[in-house]
């Protein structure tokens, strides 16, 4: 375990591919965590000139309206500095809960799994994946 109190980030942002960042989130997203996620992501976008961020929330236990609000804010902030956010890992339970809660994720692009998100990210950055013969 990392020492998360000592300035070390608990949510590492990985450069998955040229122009594509991946942030996998586990556990709970409270306001402190979301602030840290936003700061880390913005810094990494600027540093790498990323075009797309994949934010995987499969490991997030509960997506209530506060969490959704945090995710929307992160999406808006990254959009402002020049990168689109794709939220992946929307489990069936989370999908049902979001609909029942009445949450509108606005223009946010969401996918059920990481591979769909990756496909979109490649489209966005102009890459085509091909299987070699």
């Amino acid at each position: 375990m990392n020492n998360i109190t000592n300035g070390t980030t608990a949510t590492p942002v990985n450069e998955l591919w040229d122009g594509i960042l991946l942030l996998s989130v586990f556990g709970t997203i409270d306001s402190a965590r979301s602030k840290e996620m936003m700061e880390t992501m913005l810094a990494k976008v600027v540093q790498t000139s990323a075009k797309v961020i994949v934010l995987d929330i499969l490991g997030v236990a509960v997506v209530d309206s506060a969490v959704a609000n945090h995710l929307l804010k992160i999406g808006r902030a990254t959009k402002l500095i020049g990168a689109d956010t794709i939220i992946s890992g929307i489990s069936p339970e989370v999908a049902v809960t979001l609909v029942e809660l009445g949450i509108d994720l606005e223009a946010t692009i969401t996918t059920a799994n990481l591979s769909d998100a990756l496909q979109l990210a490649f489209d966005r950055t102009g890459y085509t994946i091909e299987q070699s013969k």
Partner: peptide, 17 residues
């Protein structure tokens, strides 16, 4: 089941928040 658990847990999260 998982769906009912998540829905209720989320309701509790809303109220506690």
């Amino acid at each position: 089941g998982l769906t009912q658990r998540r829905m209720m847990a989320t309701a509790v999260s809303e109220l506690a928040t």
